[in-house]
C-alpha cells in the first residue's frame, strides 16, 4: 500500500485575544492509499486544526510550518491556485455542523453541481444527473426532488449525507471527515457511519477521520493516532490500540468508555475520568504536556519532551513510562 499523504513536523500557530496559541506542535502523520486513519483526542487537542491546516482553511493570520506531501507535492507550500484545484477534487472535506456548513440561500443541488462544474466541467442535465447519482450513493431517496431542496428543509442526517455526497462528487483520493457524527443523534450517527463504511469499501478512498468518539473509531478506522495538546502521543493499528494502549492518556480515554458487556465474574467499576483539562500551549514545552494529569508521571516527565518511539510493530508512543503491555490480550 503506497503512501498517499505524508505530513511532517506540522506546526500551527493561531492567534486569539491574548496572543499566540501553539495549536499543533510538530505532528507527523502518514495516510496510506485506501487506509482509514482516525485522529483522536479531546476538544482542543488540535486535531481539527491539523485537518484544516492541510487544506489551508485556517484564518488568514494563522502561521503554518512543516510539510504535507500529497502525491509528490507539498500542500502547504504550493501556490494557492494549485491547491484550489486539489480542494474538492483530490482531497475533499466534510465538516462537523451540516446546518451551518451549507449555504442557506442555495439549494443542495446548486451546491453539489458547483463542485462538478468547477472540477469536471459538467453542466446542465449531465450535472444534475450526476448529482442525483451522488445522492443515491448516500442513500437519499427521491434525489431529483431533494436536489431542489434548501438546506433548512432537510433533516440533520440528510444534510450530513448531502455534505458527504458533495465531497464525493469528484472521486476524491482522500476524504477528510471532521467529527462527522458529533452533531447528530445516535440513530443517525449509526446510519452515517454505515454509509461511510460502505462507501469506503466500495470506492477505496483513504479517509482521515477526526473524532473524539472512540466508538466511531472502533467502527471505521484501520489505524489510530492519538493527539494531546497539539502533539501526537500514540499511533497504532486500531485493534492493537484498543487491546493494548501504551500511552497513559490513551489508556485513560479507554477506561472512561462506559462498557455494557461484562464477562461473568467481572466486577463493575466506576467510570474513571482523567482529572484536569487539556492545556492551551502558547509556546513549545520542554516536558511532557500530559504529565500534570498523568497517574504514571515521574520527575523526568517534567524535564524533557518524550519523542515518539516504536514500542511494537507499527506502534509508536511518546512516553517515558508507558503503560505495561496488557498480557491478557497480547497473546490474542
Amino acid at each position: 500500500m503506497g503512501t498517499l499523504l505524508a505530513v511532517e513536523q506540522l506546526e500551527v500557530r493561531l492567534f486569539d485575544r491574548s496572543g499566540v496559541v501553539l495549536a499543533v506542535r510538530g505532528v507527523d502523520l502518514t495516510i496510506g492509499e485506501g487506509e482509514v486513519v482516525a485522529l483522536v483526542g479531546e476538544s482542543g487537542c488540535g486535531k481539527s486544526v491539523t485537518a484544516l491546516a492541510l487544506l489551508r482553511l485556517l484564518p488568514a493570520d494563522a502561521r503554518i510550518q512543516g510539510s504535507a506531501h500529497f502525491q509528490g507535492r507539498d500542500l502547504l507550500s504550493m501556490p494557492i491556485r494549485e491547491l484550489r484545484s486539489i480542494r474538492g477534487s483530490d482531497i475533499a472535506m466534510v465538516f462537523q455542523e451540516p446546518m451551518s456548513s451549507l449555504n442557506p440561500a442555495f439549494t443542495i443541488g446548486n451546491q453539489i453541481i458547483e463542485v462538478l462544474k468547477r472540477h469536471k466541467g459538467l453542466r446542465g442535465a449531465s450535472a444534475r444527473q450526476r448529482a442525483a447519482e451522488l445522492l443515491n450513493l448516500v442513500r437519499i431517496g427521491a434525489p431529483e426532488q431533494r436536489l431542489r431542496a434548501y438546506p433548512h428543509q432537510l433533516s440533520g442526517g440528510m444534510r450530513q449525507r448531502a455534505m458527504i455526497a458533495m465531497a464525493l462528487a469528484c472521486d476524491p483520493k482522500l476524504l477528510i471527515l471532521d467529527e462527522p457524527t458529533t452533531a447528530l443523534d445516535v440513530t443517525t450517527q449509526a446510519q452515517i457511519l454505515d454509509i461511510v463504511r460502505d462507501l469506503q469499501q466500495r470506492l477505496g478512498m483513504s479517509i482521515l477521520l477526526i473524532t473524539h468518539d472512540l466508538g466511531v473509531v472502533a467502527d471505521l478506522a484501520d489505524r489510530v493516532a492519538v493527539m494531546y495538546a497539539g502533539a501526537k502521543v500514540e499511533d497504532a493499528e486500531v485493534g492493537r490500540l484498543f487491546a493494548s494502549p501504551r500511552h497513559p492518556y490513551t489508556a485513560g480515554l479507554l477506561r472512561a468508555l462506559p462498557r455494557l458487556n461484562f464477562q461473568p465474574g467481572e466486577t463493575r467499576q466506576r467510570l474513571t475520568e482523567i482529572p484536569g483539562m487539556v492545556p492551551v500551549l502558547r509556546a513549545h514545552l520542554d516536558a511532557c504536556a500530559f504529565a500534570p494529569r498523568c497517574p504514571r508521571a515521574e520527575d523526568d516527565c517534567h524535564l524533557a519532551k518524550p519523542g515518539l518511539e516504536a514500542c511494537d510493530a507499527k506502534h509508536v508512543v511518546a512516553c517515558f513510562h508507558p503503560e505495561p503491555v496488557d498480557t491478557r490480550v497480547a497473546s490474542s
Binding site: L55, G88, E97, S100, L102, N103, P104, R118, H119
Partner: peptide, 26 residues
Amino acid sequence: RTDYVRTARAKGLSEWVVVGKHALRN
C-alpha cells in the same frame, strides 16, 4: 467568517465565486 464560506473554499471554488456568490448573497 461563516462555515458555509469555509465549505465553499474547501470545494476549491475560486475566490471570486466564494465572495461574489456565497458570501455576498447572504
